[in-house]
Amino acid sequence: MPGLPLAVSGLRLAFAGADVIDLPSLAIAPGTMTVLSGASGSGKSTLLYLLSGLLRPDAGSIAWAGTDIALLGESRRDRWRRKEAGFIFQNFHLIEEMSPLDNVLVPIWLDSFSANAKRRRALDLLRQLDVPAERDSVAKLSRGQQQRVAIARALSGNPSIIFADEPTASLDAAAGETVAAILQRLAREDGRTVVVATHDPALKVLADQSLLLDHGKREPAP
């Protein structure tokens, strides 16, 4: 699945009269990993939500391969996300009452009644990520394994773009390195566009592009 290029221009989002995001331009090439970094409250998660269409900007465009998602209505943005994007979160946000396999199939159920056709792919993803698929609940897995289930879930719809919000923040160093390596592989080997909001220096090292934010504005790299 080749990734999609991103072109952002004049992006602005204000809250209570103050700009929380002010980004004149940003370009991301497919097959790369871009890291959004900055201190807490710098706006990196907000920018990630804007780029994924979860938030709508007050001004500007967010064009993924020419599709300006800032102009799309809610239902079309939902459909775009289902088709093009996968999401990874700091706290994994898996459904504990489900098995690893069923968690991976969740994005499929958002679109189709039956996930049977995608079951093989889900199992392959879990195997590739070294997660025991047969467990009856993801709660019984280690935190590293849970994050890998979350990665498999993000990949189950075979998306072009992966958004990751602090994907290593709640993992130990070893598990964090594994996840960082997987994200890098998704960009470099699979050709997907990977956008990561993180504090983790290890991810910054692996990134093709790094964007440092301060109060929603781009800061020059140190």
């Binding site: 994924s52 979860l54 809610e74 239902s75 939902d78 459909r79 775009w80 996300r81 289902r82 088709k83 994007a85 996968g86 999401f87 979160f89 946000h93 459904i95 969740v106 994005p107 958002l110 679109d111 879930r153 719809g157």
Partner: peptide
């Protein structure tokens, strides 16, 4: 609510 928000992030429609 976080579970439902995650589903929305994954692309679930409000109807879902």
């Amino acid at each position: 609510r976080q579970r439902f928000a995650v589903l929305r992030a994954l692309g679930a429609s409000p109807l879902f």
